[in-house]
Amino acid sequence: MLDFSILTTNMDSFLEGLKITIIASLIALLGSFILGTLLAVMRISPFKPLNWLGTAYVEFIRNIPVLVIVFFAYLAGNFGGMTAGTIGLTIYTAAFIAEAIRAGIMSVPKGQMEAARSTGLTYGQAMRIVILPQAIKIVIPPLGNQFINLVKNSSLLAVVAGGDLMYQGDLISAKTYVTFDTYVFVALFYLILTIPLSLGVGYLEKRLARSN
């Protein structure tokens, strides 16, 4: 039977960890969405150097373990654990979001760009006003899945003392020696976050499928 006193006596720590996990995830989501969109546009840009830069970023970052990236972010700057962890997550997730958005851009018919350009819009205007809004609508479901991954990956903040849910779990289990039960509660807190997200993504998928 689970030892619920672990939960009740350490509720403040759990909630503090939950709060930091949520904040870090939201900041990393926003950051990686902006960076990822920029990278996606670079990767399909007709300007070759931008193209290479975007491709190099995605290929390098995607193929390094996120744990290593979080370590680098921690060691490279004079940041606290939470900041470094959030930066690491942003850098890593941006590579995946870039690929999702690039796929979205590619799935918008080529004629949309041609129609926009033929009215005299610049490439940048056509991309921003005509192509990206269509592309992002298409990639909302895969972006939702990236967000769920991001929430789970945020547990890596623990290795740089980021103060998140996983980190609080480590502290509690070290203090109480009740290891198994502590991590069961940690897992339950993650589920409280991820299951609604997962249901939300499923709902969006269905709605978008219908509107098309």
């Binding site: 018919p109 949309q112 129609a115 926009a116 350009r117 033929s118 009215t119 610049t122």
Partner: peptide, 17 residues
């Protein structure tokens, strides 16, 4: 872009936004 302002184009598949 300036030249294109003066040339309208209509496509087979419309390509409305």
């Amino acid at each position: 872009n300036k030249l294109r302002r003066n040339i309208g184009m209509v496509f087979q598949h419309f390509y409305l936004y």
